[in-house]
Simulated scan of single mutants.
Amino acid sequence: MKIAILASNRKPIPSPKDLIFAPGVIIYELVEGLVRKGHDVTLFAPEGTKTTAKLITAGTKSLYEDFSDNQNFAKKRASNIEEYLLKDVQYELLMASTAFEYIKKNKFDIVHSHKTLHEIYFSKLIDTPCLFTFHDISKREIPNDISLRRLKKYTKTAYFVSISDSQRHGLEFLNFVDTVYNGVKIEDFKFSNGDKNLLFVGRIDISKGADTAVKLALETKRPLLIVGDVAYNSPGLKIFNKIKKHIDNERIKYLGHVQFDKIKDIYKQAKVLLFPIQQSDSFGLVMIEAMACGTPVIAFNLGSVPEIIKNGQTGFICPVGDTNAMIKAIRKIYEMTESEYQKMRQNCRQHVEENFTIEKMVDGYEKVYEKVIRDWKSKNIH
């Protein structure tokens, strides 16, 4: 197949080491996997992108590189939010227009966009089926009625794929073709026997639950390691100030940002990953990254959690907001015999190998492409 894949103009593909950007990792691995399978892939992404596919840029570096200017990106964006939002629209429209002008002049079997905000407006202007993957969006995150009407307008001529079934809640009116779960490059995550500490990996903001993780560590008297950037907005800073008083680098340690190639070792050394999210996550890549190393996950029953964790086998799923249930789950893991605990770690690794690898993800998208192309031809849209 001849496939056009559209990435955001915000960040290079793959993400730089000082930035955690899950969609960038997923897009990179998808493109490389499709190329390995012999497909003719063109990737539309910023300058500086690394790929074995044909690369088309809009003639600019990423917004991340332009806007951060060797400063902390999150801090600068938070303190200059109006300037950032204006530039963001300009960068994304430049990429979208560049991509669709090229696609209109060159024959493709399918267009796969990993963002929808601007690209969907262009989808009716070409005689090629357009597929959209939602990486972050859910009904809760659609900002206003205009955005909702925009999606409804294009639902009959565009195709959509979700990264979890839960992501579709409230968006059932869209033309979803299938769900394709994110995957990890399993060989990069080494299985281990684990260690003694609790682990929290995620952005320090109101939605991820870092403060809840600290509360759980204090209640269970277990050491906690926190990894993640602070969201430099009012809620994020409030959460960080709340947990900062407990950081003593003994019982509660905070590492801040950790590069992706080093965080894998941190997953290996953890007893359990805490995922006490306060709002639904579209997927939650950290869960499968931890389980790939054998580390079980304890999470609130929100969003994709019940699709990823096998309750009692690869971790525990707790009622939303029920910290007492989480405390019981933590104690249950620490009270396991060594053989019981190692069995759970083996279950985690096997679960990822069977359901959440890059190969399985690439195969899933390949099947979706074939389904979309068949449907497009049968309907003869346009």
Rank of each mutant, 00 (worst) to 15 (best):
H114K: 04
C130I: 04
N182W: 07
K208G: 08
V111E: 06
K107H: 14
D195W: 09
N144F: 04
L218P: 06
E219N: 15
I204P: 08
S164N: 01
R150C: 09
F191D: 05
V177W: 02
T220V: 03
I204V: 10
I137G: 07
N175L: 01
I120N: 01
P235I: 05
L151Q: 00
G170T: 08
F108P: 07
G183K: 05
L151G: 02
N182F: 11
G209S: 04
H135Y: 03
E219G: 05
F100H: 06
S113P: 10
T157E: 11
L131I: 06
F176S: 02
E101W: 14
F189V: 10
T116S: 12
V230N: 03
E219Q: 11
E219C: 06
Y159Q: 05
S192E: 13
L199M: 05
S164C: 07
L131W: 02
K152G: 06
S138I: 07
R222K: 15
T179G: 01
L199W: 01
K215L: 04
T157M: 10
K221A: 09
D136A: 12
L224Y: 00
Q167Y: 04
P223L: 06
L171R: 02
G209T: 09
S207C: 13
F160T: 01
I110L: 10
T128V: 15
K139T: 12
H118I: 12
D211W: 02
R150G: 05
L171S: 03
L225I: 14
S234H: 14
T179R: 04
H118A: 13
N106S: 11
H118N: 11
T116E: 09
K196F: 11
V227G: 02
K208C: 02
K185Y: 14
Y181Q: 09
Y154M: 08
G170A: 12
H112C: 10
L225T: 12
F176M: 01
S234M: 14
E219S: 12
D178H: 02
E187S: 10
I146F: 15
T128K: 09
F134L: 11
T155P: 10
N233G: 10
L131S: 01
S192C: 10
T128E: 06
N193D: 15
I137D: 11
K156R: 10
I226M: 02
D195Q: 11
I126L: 05
L151A: 04
E101T: 13
S164I: 00
V180Q: 00
L224G: 03
S138M: 10
A217S: 14
L131M: 07
R203S: 11
L225N: 06
K105R: 15
S123H: 10
E141D: 13
L117Y: 14
D127N: 12
I120S: 07
D195I: 12
Y102S: 06
K139P: 04
S192D: 15
C130P: 00
E219L: 14
H118P: 03
V161S: 08
K185V: 10
L224H: 01
D205G: 14
F176Q: 02
F122T: 07
L199N: 00
Y232W: 11
S192L: 07
K156P: 05
D188N: 13
G202W: 00
V161M: 02
H112P: 03
A231Q: 11
R203N: 09
K104N: 09
R140N: 14
F189C: 03
K104Y: 11
